[in-house]
Amino acid sequence: MIRVHVSPDPIDIATEMTLAERPKAGAVASFCGLVRADDGVDCLELEHYPGATEAALERIADHALARWSLQAATIVHRVGPMRPGERIVFVAAAAPHRRDALDACAYLIDRLKTDAPFWKRETRDGQASWVEARESDAAAAERWQA
C-alpha cells in the first residue's frame, strides 16, 4: 500500500503510523523532519509543483516497493507556511522484518530530498531567502543508485 499526501495541514504522526501498520508487517520504520529552530528562522514556507509533486513521491514509493519486501510505504509532506518545531515531512515503511523497513525508510527520505519538486523559503527578521540545495543531499540520494 502506498500513501502519498501533500497538504498544508499539520502532520498527525499517530494517524500516519496507524495507517502504515499492515497485518503482515512485523516492523514499521519511520522518519519525521521538523522545521529547525536554529539561526533565527521564524517562518519556513514550502512551495511545490502540484501534480508533479505527488507523481514524483509516488514514483519514489513505487521504487521502494520494488526494491524491498514492503507492506506499506508512506510519504507525507506539508506545504505552505510553517513555524520552527513543526513537522514538515513524515515517511514510513512497513515490512515483515526491521532491516527492510529501516533501509526503505532511509531510501524514502533520501530520494525525496532530491527527486521531488519542493522549494523552501526561510524568513528571518522579516527577510525572506530561498534555501540553497545541498551537495550532501545529492550524495545521500546517490548512495541508493547501486
Binding site: 525525496l112 530530498k113 519542493f118 522549494w119 540545495a133
Partner: peptide, 10 residues
C-alpha cells in the same frame, strides 16, 4: 515546461 531552481524539500 517548468523551470525552477534545484529542489530543497524534506
Amino acid at each position: 515546461v517548468a523551470i525552477f531552481p534545484p529542489v530543497t524539500g524534506g
